[in-house]
Design a protein around this nucleic acid. Structure first.
Lengths: 172, 172
DNA sequence: TATTGTTATACTCTATAACTATA
DNA sequence: TATAGTTATAGAGTATAACAATA
């Protein structure tokens, strides 16, 4: 009831009670604010979008290289979107693209030293923003509780096919 | 440790431990997936972007009218962005704009019957997506716990000034 | 002078469809 | 035929700066 968006005329929005609406809107608003701050930081300190940051981070986490398809997973929702972003990163010398040795259709993306260096430059400030915005009002215990709640939700979302296939007719 | 992004080379990203990174990435990924699905639903069933949906929902929650500045709060990060979105809504007859009676500089935005009707059309499907993606793997108890964790975080974020003012020099 | 809102403009990003090449 | 990726292109959205009008 504390959120102004929870009283949208229909107090019960077909299956969601007020408490669930509160949860949903709190989640969306918090992440929206966090994402906005984080994107400002990344842009200011590394001239990176959040998507580009994610791509570099994934590559670094994957021992340096991934195929385009692997790289796209969860970050981008269209092939061409990734081609565009990877192109930008390549232009700046942060990654390299080369035909995969095992599958000639595939392209292997590799993070460069410059890419790793930029990631290193950007990470401290990134962590600082997250710390100040997300964790300032969250005890370590609460942070763990939050992760424990979100992990299964995220995993479920990952494995749930997009709703686009089921346009869901519901006209009154 | 379950998230591939948590091992970005530097296991401890200057102030954030691995558990906190997990929490952060889980939060961002879950909301990214949720937002994507939700936007597809809104676009398919009401030809609305999430921002436009928020604007209509806020107006409905506010007894029908708000000033542009009030409406912008938390939804949009620039004045012109709101003017653009409000213009689209007005073109479709979902809202009305008129000079505020008390302050001639201000513009009062009012949701129309068509706007309320569209909101009513879109809400059931919206709730369904949220239910299936967010609450399917969350007990009512856990949903409340999540809200309890997020509410103070959101409130803190709302009241924290954007980091843009402090460009945060950190060059090595 | 400060505030409210609009406009013009430039830019970033995304997505669809058509296309090439390999499996 | 199916899969991997690119390209062309078009459209949506955002942000900055200059502007007008009112407080």
């Amino acid at each position: 009831m504390s959120d102004p968006q929870s009283g949208t005329g229909a107090d019960d929005a077909a299956g969601l009670d007020a408490a669930e609406l509160d949860t949903y809107f709190a989640l969306m608003e918090a992440v929206s604010l966090l994402q906005h701050s984080v994107e400002q930081q990344l842009r200011a300190e590394g001239d990176l979008s959040y998507v580009q940051f994610q791509l570099l981070a994934r590559l670094a986490a994957a021992r340096g290289q991934l195929t385009m398809t692997e790289l796209a997973d969860g970050v981008v929702y269209s092939r061409s979107g990734l081609t565009y972003q990877a192109g930008l990163l390549e232009k700046r010398g942060l990654v390299t693209r080369a035909t995969s040795p095992d599958d000639e259709r595939g392209v292997t993306v590799t993070i460069t030293d410059a890419g790793r260096a930029l990631l290193g430059t950007v990470l401290p400030g990134h962590a600082e923003v997250i710390d100040q915005l997300l964790f300032e009002r969250l005890s370590h215990k609460d942070a763990k509780a939050l992760a424990a709640l979100l992990a299964p939700v995220r995993d479920h979302m990952r494995s749930t096919p997009p709703r686009s296939a089921t346009p869901r007719r519901r006209r009154t």
